[in-house]
């Protein structure tokens, strides 16, 4: 596949980088990334991946755009209120870059649909806002041997880790099982600064790009935490012994996906 003149110009800042070059840009154009959740994290991740020329981007979300989303979900605009988030996200990405094929999935991910959904993608981005979904994505990615980026944001804090099969702990290695409903704040009651999604969602896009081009060190085996008020990033080394993990360990006890009970979020994700 040869680049068009327009592509050479569009991706010139990538092509000039020795870590990317024409070869890396072709890898990006041939890559398939699935973003689960078209919200605070998924919005910036999707936009940067579309701008970067990731050739196929899947986006899964069952919700509609709400006015209260626009403080952080920058892929949607005021005119999109009431529209399906995946439709709005698809339109923004296609406007940004016609090279990108966007697959919109207007669904909640469940144990029934997730394995099939992730199977055709090279890298998965978890942009969901609740623990049942985060554990579901983790377990499905472990079972399907797919790399993924976990992230969470709340108030002025965020966290990030990358799972690559066979290269360090999964999310369940660290967090075992979802906390009981409402034990840990996740939803709109807690609040979040919109730019947190920008910081952490962009880092998720960065991890996907590094994975695709095969350059640099991924955030495997470590959890990155960000405290915006203290302006403090910490990369915390995680234990490397994953043998005892219920899903990725040597004798897994979780061999079927689990639909944990969802916390009440009033639909205002």
């Amino acid at each position: 596949m040869a680049f068009t003149n327009e592509q050479i110009e569009r991706y010139s800042r990538h092509i000039i980088l020795k870590e990317i070059g024409a070869k890396g840009q072709k890898k990006l154009l041939n890559a398939k990334v699935l973003i689960i959740g078209a919200g605070g994290l998924g919005a910036p991740a999707a936009m940067y991946l579309a701008a970067a020329g990731v050739g196929t981007i899947g986006i899964a979300d069952a919700d509609e755009v709400d006015l209260s989303n626009l403080q952080r979900q920058i892929i949607h605009a005021t005119k999109d209120v009431g529209k399906a988030k995946v439709q709005s996200a698809k339109e923004t990405m296609e406007e940004l870059n016609p090279d990108v094929k966007v697959n919109a999935y207007r669904v909640f991910v469940t144990s029934e649909n997730i394995r099939e959904l992730i199977r055709e993608y090279d890298f998965i981005i978890d942009g969901t806002d609740n623990f049942p979904a985060k554990f579901l994505i983790n377990d499905a990615c472990v079972m399907e041997k797919k790399p993924f980026s976990h992230a969470g944001i709340i108030r002025f804090k965020g966290q990030l880790m990358t799972y690559v099969p066979g290269q360090g702990p999964c999310y369940r290695c660290v967090f075992k099982e979802p906390p009981p409903k409402d034990a840990v704040p996740t939803c709109k009651q807690a609040g979040v600064v919109g730019a947190m999604g920008g910081v952490i969602g962009s880092l998720q896009a960065m991890e996907a790009i590094k994975y695709i081009i095969g350059q640099g060190d991924l955030l495997t085996g470590s959890l990155l935490t960000y405290d915006a008020l203290k302006m403090d990033f910490r990369k915390i080394k995680l234990p490397s012994d994953t043998c005892g993990c219920a899903v990725c360990g040597t004798n897994p006890t979780i061999t079927e996906l689990i639909d944990y009970e969802q916390a009440e979020c009033d639909g205002a994700l």
């Binding site: 959740g37 919200g39 605070g40 994290l41 998924g42 989303n69 979900q73 978890d126 942009g127 969901t128 806002d129 609740n130 623990f131 985060k134 992230a151 969470g152 944001i153 709340i154 804090k157 965020g158 966290q159 660290v174 967090f175 906390p179 840990v184 704040p185 996740t186 939803c187 807690a190 979040v192 999604g197 959890l223 915390i236 995680l238 994700l269």
Partner: peptide, 11 residues
């Protein structure tokens, strides 16, 4: 010692 916290938000 490290403390690792659940962080669930994202949407």
């Amino acid at each position: 010692v490290e403390f690792l916290y659940f962080m669930g938000g994202g949407q």
